[in-house]
């Protein structure tokens, strides 16, 4: 079943710059997809159409049968997004408040919100920090907080924009483990990155973007070797003719 269907999607910015250009793409429920491409290739722009943060200049995005343009609120509930900059998406004054922000916007009952927040914090292992101020968390913890924030909204599709930027090795492992376990729990996962090394072992599908277009789409085994043609470094193991290995072992 296709949870995301993108048809002839284009976006032109106010200054005339083309962000993405005539993209066609379908994604099945439960897929783990990595979008790779150079800086400025249009990954962020594409992602922002999935929950209606940007309005297409042409084409449409259909989520589980209903167009994003018809019901942006549903799209935002369905597609949770973790942004490139973890700091700027913290809304609450405490970890608890921040996770509660989404459910509060959905107008849920207090008791329901409390339950969802505690479940989400448990899922990312931050329940001990509920009363802390988010700015005092480490980089990896901040990312996991952002993940908890979208889990509490009950999103089925989780979109990560450069989830590993600025993280140290333990931070990367924490976040990666989180993402992989969410995938096992049945979420559809979309990751944008220009660094394949860290995720590719877990991905089922690898899409290359360049200048606002999708130029290669397939299983990582098949198209990983070509990465450098598109300005993305191939993982070390591939250089030596081996299979990629997980960062979690």
């Amino acid at each position: 079943m296709n949870i995301i269907e993108i048809k002839n999607l284009s976006h032109r910015f106010a200054n005339g710059e083309i962000g993405i250009d005539d993209i066609n793409l379908t994604i099945r429920e439960g897929e783990f997809v990595v979008f790779a491409g150079m800086n400025g290739s249009g990954k962020t722009t594409l992602f922002r159409h999935l929950n209606g943060l940007l309005t297409p200049s042409g084409g449409s995005v259909i989520l589980d049968g209903i167009s994003v343009a018809d019901d942006p609120k549903r799209a935002r509930r369905m597609v949770g997004m973790v942004f490139q900059n973890a700091d700027s998406q913290i809304v609450g004054e405490t970890v608890y408040d921040d996770v509660a922000f989404g459910p509060e916007n959905l107008g849920l009952e207090q008791a329901m919100i409390a339950q969802r927040v505690s479940e989400a914090l448990h899922a990312v292992g931050l329940n001990a920090h509920a009363d802390k101020r988010p700015h005092l968390l480490s980089g990896g913890e901040k990312r996991r907080l952002a993940i908890a924030g979208i889990l509490a909204m009950g999103s089925r599709v989780l979109v990560f924009d450069e989830p590993f930027s600025n993280l140290d090795y333990p931070g990367i492992c924490q976040v990666l483990k989180q993402i992989v376990s969410l995938h096992h729990a049945g979420h559809t996962i979309l990751i944008a990155t220009h660094d394949l090394e860290k995720v590719i072992f877990h991905a089922q599908r690898l899409i290359f973007m360049k200048d606002g277009n999708i130029i290669q789409d397939g299983a990582p085994d098949d198209n990983l070797k070509e990465a450098e043609r598109f300005g993305v470094r191939t993982p070390c193991a591939t250089h030596f003719g081996k299979e990629p290995i997980s960062w979690l072992t």
């Binding site: 943060l53 935002r76 942004f83 700027s88 998406q89 809304v91 916007n105 107008g107 919100i113």
Partner: peptide, 21 residues
């Protein structure tokens, strides 16, 4: 930062009719 924050708030369905404590 404020700009990024407002986009992030939008992404989490920000409305004024929210549950209040």
């Amino acid at each position: 930062t404020a700009d990024e924050l407002s986009v992030a708030m939008d992404a989490r369905c920000y409305t004024e009719k929210r549950t209040s404590m």
